[in-house]
């Protein structure tokens, strides 16, 4: 057992009284400490033990909810809305711009593990559609140029 995983799980589970009812916030908080935005198998096992629930329940919850992941992802998650409004507003260009700028297809992670680009369903930004969500922040009314700037800023590059 990796001691750092054990320590993290211990501090977070303790905060939630080791009560399995709090599995969602526990998993979300634990994932937020992962550089790769995911919960590994060992961590899932440790959590199951601490909360006295089965590992399969932990894995079920991780795979069921789209904000949680059982597989490593990029440091920054870019979610392109692919729901009705954004489709009506022709999000194809937007998808293409992000793919071009990141050099990957939707569903992939950049080789430097910096970005993961995925489709998501409506996150309630239809008034600025087509929209993307980068980690917790929403961006709409995007142009080719803005996408370029946005990615550069996230890369820490000034253009």
């Amino acid at each position: 057992m990796k001691p750092e995983l054990e320590q993290l799980a211990e501090s977070i589970c303790a905060k939630y009284d080791y009560d399995a009812v709090n599995l969602l916030p526990i998993l979300q908080e634990i994932q937020s400490h992962s550089a790769r935005n995911y919960i590994c198998e060992e961590m899932a096992r440790i959590i199951a033990q601490k909360l006295d629930i089965t590992e399969s329940r932990v894995y079920d919850v991780i795979t069921y909810f789209s904000a949680l992941s059982s597989e490593p992802r990029g440091e920054i998650i870019i979610q392109i809305c692919n729901s009705t409004t954004c489709n009506v507003n022709n999000n194809r260009d937007l998808i293409h711009w992000f793919e071009e700028e990141l050099g990957i297809n939707v569903g992939e992670t950049t080789p430097d593990n910096k970005f993961t680009l995925i489709f998501t369903h409506c996150f309630g930004a239809c008034d600025v559609s087509p929209a993307v969500r980068i980690d917790h922040d929403v961006y709409g009314m995007l142009t080719r140029e803005k996408v370029k700037e946005l990615i550069a800023a996230k890369r820490g590059v000034v253009v």
Partner: peptide, 9 residues
């Protein structure tokens, strides 16, 4: 609020 196209809440 999860229905696509909804953002009133």
């Amino acid at each position: 609020e999860g229905e696509p196209g909804t953002f009133k809440d």
